[in-house]
C-alpha cells in the first residue's frame, strides 16, 4: 500500500494519500482528538442531541470559539453576540494569510476547503519546516485529517456523553506541547531569536492586561512590532547606503 513505487507515482491513490496524511498530522491527533471529546461531552451535558456536536465541530471548526459558542447558544444569546464573539476570537486568522501556502492548493473547491479548514493546528503544521515542500494535494489531505480528529472526537464525546467526565483528563496538554515544539522547530529553522521573544512578550502582555481579548491583542501587537522592526531596519540600511 505504501511501497516507494506507489508513493513516487504522481497520483498515488486515495489510500496512499490517506496513509501519508495520517503520518503528516500525527503530531496533531494526541491533542485534537481528546479536546474534541471534551467538547462533545459538554454538548451532550448541555441537553442538546449528540449530533449537534458533529455539526458545531465540523462546520464552525474553530476550537476555542466552539466552547464559547456552546455557552452562548445554550443561554440563547442574540446572533449579534455570536457574530462579535466569532469575530474577536478568530481575528488572529487574518494574519495566517501571510504565510499559509494557499497558492500551492489548486482549484476553486480546493482553495475553498483549505481556507475553511485553516485552523490553528493546520496553520502551524502546514507552515512548519517539515511541510515546506508539500504540494497542495498533500496539504488538503493533512487539513482533512486534522478536521476529522476534531469533529470525530466531538462526535465520540457526545455519543458517550454523560458516561465520561467533562474534563480531558490532562490530555489537553498535548495541544500546548504541539504549539511548543513547532515554535522550537521554527526558531531552529530561522535562527531569528527576536521573533519568538517579541511574540512571547506580546502574548504575556496581552494575557495580563486584556485577558478577555488575549488572542486578537497579542497577534495585532506582534504584527505591529514586526512592522516597526522592519521599518527600523530599512532606515538603518538607508542610513548606511
Amino acid at each position: 500500500m505504501t511501497s516507494p513505487a506507489v508513493d513516487a507515482a504522481p497520483r498515488a491513490g486515495t489510500r496512499a494519500d490517506l496513509a501519508r496524511a495520517v503520518r503528516d498530522s500525527g503530531s496533531v491527533g494526541p491533542g485534537a482528538f481528546p479536546t474534541g471529546v471534551a467538547f462533545g461531552v459538554l454538548v451532550a451535558q448541555s441537553g442538546l442531541p449528540w449530533w449537534w456536536a458533529s455539526v458545531f465541530s465540523g462546520l464552525i471548526y474553530a476550537g476555542s470559539l466552539e466552547f464559547l459558542f456552546l455557552g452562548l447558544v445554550t443561554a440563547a444569546a442574540p446572533l449579534a453576540a455570536v457574530a462579535v464573539t466569532a469575530f474577536l476570537v478568530n481575528l488572529r486568522h487574518v494574519f495566517y494569510a501571510f504565510s499559509f501556502p494557499l497558492h500551492r492548493v489548486k482549484g476553486r473547491l480546493g482553495k475553498a476547503y483549505s481556507t475553511f479548514a485553516l485552523s490553528d493546528e493546520a496553520f502551524v503544521v502546514a507552515t512548519g519546516h517539515a511541510a515546506r515542500t508539500f504540494p497542495g494535494r498533500r496539504i488538503l489531505w493533512l487539513q482533512a485529517c486534522i478536521h476529522l480528529y476534531w469533529a470525530g472526537g466531538a462526535t465520540v464525546g457526545a455519543l458517550l456523553g454523560s458516561a465520561l467526565p467533562a474534563g480531558t483528563g490532562g490530555l489537553d496538554f498535548a495541544v500546548t506541547a504541539l504549539f511548543t515544539v513547532l515554535a522550537i522547530d521554527g526558531l531552529l529553522a530561522h535562527r531569528d531569536v527576536p521573533v519568538p521573544l517579541l511574540a512571547l512578550g506580546c502574548a504575556l502582555a496581552a494575557r495580563f492586561t486584556v485577558p478577555g481579548q488575549m488572542l486578537p491583542v497579542a497577534f495585532a501587537s506582534f504584527a505591529a512590532l514586526m512592522t516597526v522592526r522592519h521599518l527600523l531596519r530599512r532606515r538603518g540600511e538607508d542610513a548606511r547606503a
Binding site: F95, L182, P196, A203, L215, F219, M226
Partner: peptide, 18 residues
C-alpha cells in the same frame, strides 16, 4: 517578512494562550 515570522509567532502566542 511577516510571512516568515508569523508561523513562529503564532506558535508562541498559542502556546501561551493554552
Amino acid at each position: 517578512l511577516l510571512g516568515a515570522a508569523m508561523p513562529v509567532g503564532a506558535a508562541v502566542v498559542l502556546t501561551v494562550y493554552t
